[in-house]
Each structure stands twice: as C-alpha cells, then as structure tokens.
Amino acid sequence: MGEVLVVTSGKGGVGKTTTTANIGTGLALAGKKVVLIDTDIGLRNLDVVMGLENRIVYDLVDVVEGSCRVKQALIKDKRYEGLFLLPAAQTRDKTAVKPEQMLKLCEELKDEFDLVLIDCPAGIEQGFKNAIAGANRAIVVTTPEVSAVRDADRIIGLLEANDLRNPKLLINRVRVDMVKRGDMMTIDDIIDILAIDLIGVVPDDEKIVVSTNKGEPAVTDSKSIAGQAYRNITKRILGEDVPILDLEADEGFLVKIKKMFGMKTT
C-alpha cells in the first residue's frame, strides 16, 4: 500500500513542478515505483519538464471520465524503470475533475505504486481541492520571499483544515550570498513564521533552467547543487536521516563544490 504525497505552494512559480519532477525521479532512482500526477489541467507543465510531452495520448480527464483505462493513460518514463506520469489535459479546465474522482483515482493507484506524487496547481481553488483530495502527506514549497511565505502560510492552514497534518516545508531557490548580505530571508526566519518541519533547502541553481528546458530532471545530474539537495530530500521522504545543510556550512559546501569544478568563488 503506497502513499499519496501532494506538492503544493499557493503561489505560482516557486518550483512545485520542478520539485515534483525531481523528487519523483529521485524516488525512481532509489528503486521505488512512482507515479506523478499533474493536476494543473489547462496549464500542464510536468510532461514538458519530464520530456514526455510527445507521448501523451490520454490524460487525467480521460481517466476520470472513463474514456480510457488508467493503464492506458500512464506514460512510462524514457529513462527510469518504475517511473510513470499521468499528464493533465491541456484543452480543458480545472472543473473537468472533481475531488471525489481524484480520491478514487488515488486509492486505485496507491495499490500499484509505492508513491503517488501529485503536482498541485497554483491557487486555492478547484485545482487545489482536486490535488489534495486523495493525499495523505504534503510538501509545501516556498521561496525566501515575503509573498511566497505568506501564501505558504495560507496553504498550510488549508491543508490542516482538510486533515492533512504535518505538512513538510521545502525552501526553494535560496541564494546563499544574498542571505549572507542580509538581503534575503534566512531559513530560520521562514521556519519562525510557518512553524512546520523542514524537509529540505534547495539552493538557486542555473542548472535547473537548463535541465528543465532539456526535459531532464536535475536530480540525475551529479554536478548540480540543486540536484544534490533533491537527492537528500528524496532520502528524507524515504525516512532516512540526512542532516539539513546549515546555511553557513552550506556556504562552505558551495565554495568547496565550486572549487572542485574550478569555478570562481565569489
């Protein structure tokens, strides 16, 4: 019996889809059987980030409407065994799916997969309600910006109201140099406000843009710092105890990495 994990944030553009793709791929690398569900109907992206766009024939809406079987709609990843994607429909909107239908679908997929990972759309409307309907764990993604943290706080409240206790916090796109100068919120600042457990910190990394455009998740790139952070998060999801990188130490770690690859240490 698997688990259903929803990746959500409230605010758009903080990295839900990137996180879903990387964690999903990371879990598949660890030998788990994983299915990623894109619930962002009408604005689907996960298929593009995974590089599977050209394989889509059936989608989530076809499945819940019963015009195809779940098996037919699942797209097998081109690189990793045990990794599947259930894409969203692009020519429909969020109202095409109801929370009860998502719940039923999640129950069905739970039997087959170790982990069902749901990529939630931005916002708190129908799409959000669909995404959390079948979930029993949640990861809230935020960036070190007041607006993103505010929205994350709202989302945590809504998750708890829907009986999704103990959501985990993922802080994305942290820039160590800016934090050091005092220009960016620190991790402690954010945890102070949100008061939930931290599952990981992902540093801002140019390689994410490259890997997103190529359709290859960064987690597979051993040279990417963000990839390393996602590998750690994957381990934590699986229950391993990996220490969270302290910011100061993180800086040292970054410098080390940069030196290793002969980059300038700013």
């Binding site: 024939v57 059936y58 076809d62 409407e65 019963g66 015009s67 195809c68 079987r69 037919q72």
Partner: peptide
Amino acid sequence: QAQDSAPTPAPSK
C-alpha cells in the same frame, strides 16, 4: 462489434 466493445469502454479519441 457492439458486443466486443461493451465490456471495455471504447477509447474516446
């Protein structure tokens, strides 16, 4: 044909 397609829902597209 009708009988064949009855148990499995026909692909819509």
